[in-house]
Simulated scan of single mutants.
Amino acid sequence: MSCPICGEKSDPKFRPFCSKRCADIDLGRWMSGKYAIPSDDPEDIEEAVEEIERQMSKPH
């Protein structure tokens, strides 16, 4: 199995990652919201649209 972050061979100690560094990168992506689980809940969709509208209305 290869590391999903860098593609190197995974280490059983950090599986499925090859190192603590790649595991930490993955955790950081989850915590920052880069990864997300899609939802079909209409309330979630409305909130997402509202957030996009807020972001687009901010001055640069």
Score class of each variant (00 low, 15 high):
D26A: 11
S10R: 06
P4L: 07
P42H: 03
P16S: 06
F14C: 05
P59L: 14
I45D: 08
I52Q: 05
D26M: 10
I52E: 12
Q55G: 09
I45P: 02
F17R: 02
C3S: 05
E53C: 05
P42M: 12
D26F: 12
S57H: 03
R54N: 08
C18D: 00
R29Q: 09
M56D: 11
R29S: 02
S19I: 04
D26W: 11
A23D: 04
M1W: 04
R29D: 03
S19G: 07
I5V: 15
L27Y: 02
E51A: 12
I5C: 04
Q55D: 11
C18H: 07
P38I: 06
S2H: 06
L27K: 14
V49H: 08
D40C: 09
P42T: 05
A23E: 08
D41A: 11
E8A: 15
C18K: 01
D44K: 01
C22T: 05
A36M: 08
V49R: 12
S57I: 03
P12S: 12
S32T: 09
K20D: 10
G33I: 00
D41H: 11
I52M: 11
M31S: 07
A23H: 00
C22D: 10
R21S: 12
S2T: 12
S57V: 09
Q55V: 06
